[in-house]
Simulated scan of single mutants.
Amino acid sequence: MAESPRRRQLLDAALHVIADQGLRGLTHRAVDRQAGLPEGSCSAYLRTRSALQQALTDHVAATLVADVDALAEQVRDAPPSDQGVEAALDLFLRWLGQRELLVARLELTMLATRDPDLAARLAEHRARLVELVDEIMGSLGKEHSRERAEALVASYDGILITALLKPPGERRVFLTRSLELLSSALAGSDEG
């Protein structure tokens, strides 16, 4: 479902609220203030706190899946090479520049451990990520399977969290080395 411009504005504001105040700070009023909108705007679109959290979960997950989908398209259209690490590095550096997106994802993931509805939403999006990573590995001529792709997605999560905690000047080197190690350890060898 396409988001209206106002709803997207509210969800983008909610990302900033979570990044700055955590989930405890995620209220309709805080989102309205962050968005620069009159009080009551957020609750007109998302009536309850649960609706706000669910919509934000879908927004964050859809954004990440769309980025990985674009990466899969880029790899699929490129001549075979070892560009997978470089493409992933570019994507991860872009995500690290969007701190709010990653922090919100972490906060919502932790909340999903106690909220079955959010867990189901995240599981659906994660399954698509695993599918895309498996597709990318196949496009690059790497040995691949759902299990390998799932392990890569989980490993990428850990790498991103660790990179987020590093000083910005150290992130590129850390990511490059980590992605190279992961590529050789889990992605398998070239099939050809």
Rank of each mutant, 00 (worst) to 15 (best):
E100V: 05
G97A: 11
R121N: 00
R105L: 09
L106N: 13
L102K: 09
E124K: 14
Q74W: 04
E124H: 13
R94I: 00
P80I: 09
P80L: 14
L93I: 11
A112I: 08
D90R: 15
R105P: 00
S81C: 12
V103Q: 12
P116C: 00
R114K: 04
A123P: 00
E107L: 06
H125S: 12
A112R: 07
D67M: 04
L118R: 08
A127H: 08
A78G: 03
A66I: 03
F92Y: 14
L106T: 13
T63Q: 10
D115A: 02
Q74D: 11
V65T: 12
L91V: 06
H59N: 03
H59K: 06
Q54V: 09
R114V: 00
L91N: 05
R99P: 01
L52P: 02
L101W: 04
L93V: 11
D90T: 10
V103S: 09
H125L: 01
L56T: 04
P116S: 07
L106D: 14
Q83M: 13
T63A: 12
D77M: 10
R99K: 15
R99F: 05
A112D: 07
D67R: 11
R76C: 04
S81I: 08
L93W: 08
L56M: 09
A112L: 09
L106F: 12
R121M: 04
D117K: 11
R114I: 00
D82G: 12
W95P: 02
L96S: 03
L64T: 05
V75F: 03
A62T: 13
V103I: 15
T113N: 02
L96N: 07
T113R: 13
A104M: 06
L118N: 01
P80S: 07
M110H: 15
V60A: 07
L122E: 08
S81P: 02
L108S: 05
E124T: 14
A70S: 14
A70K: 15
P80Y: 10
E107V: 06
R121D: 00
D69W: 06
A88F: 15
T109Y: 11
A72T: 08
D69P: 00
P116M: 01
E107C: 10
L111I: 05
L118W: 03
D67E: 13
S81T: 14
A119C: 02
E86P: 01
H125W: 11
H59C: 03
G84I: 09
Q53W: 03
T113L: 14
A112W: 08
L91M: 13
V65P: 01
A119S: 08
L122F: 08
L118Q: 08
A127P: 01
E100N: 10
V65F: 03
Q98Y: 06
E100A: 15
A120Y: 07
A127C: 02
V68A: 06
D67P: 00
L93S: 06
Q74M: 07
D117T: 14
D69S: 13
L111N: 07
V60H: 04
L106C: 09
G97D: 13
E107D: 12
F92I: 12
T63I: 01
D117F: 01
R126C: 02
E100Y: 04
P80Q: 11
R121P: 00
